[in-house]
Design a protein around this nucleic acid. Structure first.
Length: 280
DNA sequence: CCTTCTCCCTGCAAGC
DNA sequence: TGCTTGCAGGGAGAAG
């Protein structure tokens, strides 16, 4: 489910309910997600105030009072839901439930349990094993064409595989890699090292544009993604290539009968979608 | 270091 | 209808 735009949407949805609030009740309903949860996790959250909620790549950074950070990754199917009056009873996949001092209830729901949580001191946050080697945020100032060209130089893997490397761009995922490459007019199969200055410029612009539009749309709801309020994202309606194999390419008037339109291939075990004519 | 492959887990859609 | 198979938005860890 969640790539950068979805995680950012979740962050924005949680802020009004959690930021500045004290957690009065925390229920942990299983000992682990993808990995074991930290020792005495619920106890350590209980009674603490949440100061702010940030994001690094696909990680939510929930800053707690007393200089500790609650790190949360949604994996493939993780969801934070703000429970209203009509909230369903807790089910098998509701792994954590928190209640704030003003009565708001937030559930963490994750059927596949690829999610991940940890507690770590704020002072050493950047050195946390899961954060230390993350590349720059694609919406930040450090993500420049010079930077990207430098990271692609010397890499012989296909461009799309390198874009999925979180050390290169923090927050890129399978959907938005395909969509960004489409907008940049670059083939996912191109050797990464052959994308120097000018093309890197186009790629940077495309990635920024796609992410900004997707965030504005509340992310993409294919299966699991929902905003914490329960609303769906709607960027999936704007996909140019993802999940559209066999359909005509929206970017060129390419004749689908001649070019095959949008193609699906498998790279590093994951689906890639692109227009073989427009993307070189 | 780089790259590819397997695996973690459940749900769902397609095919038979 | 019910079974089996393959696939899904992530990424750690092992192997080459």
């Amino acid at each position: 489910m969640p790539e950068l735009p979805e995680v950012e949407t979740v962050r924005r949805g949680l802020v009004p309910v959690l930021a500045g609030r004290r957690l009065v009740e925390v229920t942990q309903r299983r000992p682990d997600l993808r990995f074991p949860l930290p020792a005495r996790f619920a106890e350590r959250l209980r009674g603490r105030r949440i100061e702010s909620i940030g994001r690094r790549g696909k990680y939510l950074l929930i800053h707690l009072e007393a200089s500790e950070v609650w790190l949360a990754h949604l994996g493939m199917s993780g969801r934070f839901c703000i429970d209203g009056e009509d909230a369903p009873a807790l089910g098998a996949h509701d792994h954590l439930v928190i209640r704030t001092e003003d009565g708001a209830v937030v559930r963490f729901h994750d059927p596949r349990r690829f999610g991940y949580m940890d507690l770590t001191p704020a002072e050493t946050l950047g050195a946390h094993p899961h954060l230390a080697s993350l590349g720059p945020d694609p919406l930040g100032r450090q993500f420049t064409a010079a930077y990207l060209a430098g990271r692609l130089a010397g890499r012989l893997a296909p461009l799309k595989a390198v874009l999925l490397d979180q050390r290169v761009v923090a927050g890129m995922g399978n959907i938005y890699a395909s969509e960004s490459l489409f907008r940049a007019g670059l083939s996912p199969e191109r050797i990464a090292a052959t994308v120097p200055g000018r093309r890197a410029e186009r790629l940077i612009a495309a990635i920024r544009q796609v992410f900004e539009e997707a965030i504005a749309a509340g992310g993409s709801s294919l299966r699991d993604h929902r905003q914490p309020s329960g609303e769906l994202g709607f960027f999936q309606h704007r996909f140019a290539v993802y999940g559209r194999a066999g359909k005509p390419c929206p970017g060129c008037d390419c004749d689908a009968t001649r070019t095959g339109g949008i193609r699906r291939i498998v790279q590093s075990g994951r689906s890639t979608f692109f227009c073989g004519r427009r993307q070189r």
